[in-house]
């Protein structure tokens, strides 16, 4: 194989490899796809079950609790706006994608981050890998996802899951590690067990960092979900993608507005949750 042939050789290897995977691993990948799609579709069904104004009010109430009355009003208006410009189903679709992907990512990233915070050796292995994941443009994660799961929401969710892992992991690990020394000493001098040290001392001090990680993961997921419109994920991403391709200015403006609204709502909700957590310690 000479240098000039590399591209072709590469391509054919990839194709063969993928064929092998789909022959042998199709069961696994189909299962993954089904799980992901199932989670997404159940959530979406839940969203669609309730009339749009109820969802909007619920979000506003949550916003009130976490970020104050003024934000709640803005959120309510924003969400209703999304409905009135005819993009409610898409907004809900995007929301469902973001929530499912982020939750899955947090379910993996936070426990892993806690472990890494307690065991520096583990951290030294995982952190550089996830650092690399974060450095890469998120767009490319669609490739392995689409190769394994084909078009559709499963792909979008898988790619988003990958992108949402690093922030939550890194910040959780950091938070656990960065407990001030004097409190570690206090714990030891008081005769705490390992569990007690973790639950009563390390974890409370790590909470701000963990919340920041959740916030970042959420926003990374959101960004990715919008990009994933290109793989048929539904939602606002697909709206934007088709609007750009057809140069439909009106539709793209509407889509952009909906995305910005959703961005602001999600971000402020996450930040509000972080400050509310913080507020518990005064």
């Amino acid at each position: 194989m000479s240098i000039e042939n590399f591209p072709d050789a590469f391509d054919s290897t990839v194709d063969t490899g993928l064929e092998w995977l789909s022959d042998n691993g199709s069961g696994l990948f189909d299962a993954i796809n089904d799980v992901l799609k199932g989670a997404y579709e159940s959530l979406l069904w839940l969203f669609n079950l309730t009339p749009y104004y109820v969802v909007a009010v619920l979000i506003a109430l949550l916003g009130w609790r976490l970020a104050g009355l003024r934000f709640a009003i803005i959120a309510l208006i924003g969400m209703l706006f999304c409905a009135f410009i005819g993009l409610w189903p898409e907004t809900m679709g995007t929301l469902a994608l973001v929530v499912v992907a982020t939750l899955l990512a947090l379910l993996v990233a936070i426990p892993l981050g806690v472990l890494a915070g307690l065991l520096p050796r583990l951290d030294r292995i995982i952190e550089p890998a996830l650092d690399l994941v974060q450095t890469m443009p998120p767009y490319i994660y669609l490739l392995p996802a689409i190769a394994l799961l084909g078009y559709g929401t499963g792909t979008a969710l898988l790619a988003t899951f990958v992108v949402a892992l690093p922030p939550a992991f890194c910040l959780t690990s950091l938070g656990i590690r960065m407990t001030p020394n004097e409190f570690i000493e206090l714990g030891n001098a008081s005769g705490v067990t390992g569990w007690q040290m973790f639950l009563k001392i390390r974890l409370p001090f790590a909470m701000p960092s963990i919340m920041a990680g959740i916030n970042q993961s959420l926003m990374m997921a959101f960004g990715m979900v919008v990009i994933a419109g290109i793989v048929g994920s539904g939602g606002l991403g697909e709206t934007i993608y088709s609007a750009i391709r057809t140069l439909d200015i009106a539709k793209s403006i509407n889509g952009a507005i909906a995305i910005v609204i959703l961005t602001m709502v999600l971000d402020r909700l996450a930040q509000g949750a972080a400050t509310a957590q913080e507020g518990k310690r005064l």
């Binding site: 591209p7 391509d11 194709d15 767009y139 669609l142 490739l143």
Partner: peptide, 29 residues
């Protein structure tokens, strides 16, 4: 490279897509 990745994605040319993706990784690094 973005256009190459897009082509790979939309035309399901995985080989091209992967090559371009890796090239993006390379440039990023």
């Amino acid at each position: 490279l973005g256009a190459e990745v897009t082509r790979g994605l939309t035309r399901m040319e995985m080989g091209l897509g992967l090559r371009a993706g890796l090239a993006i990784v390379a440039v990023a690094l």
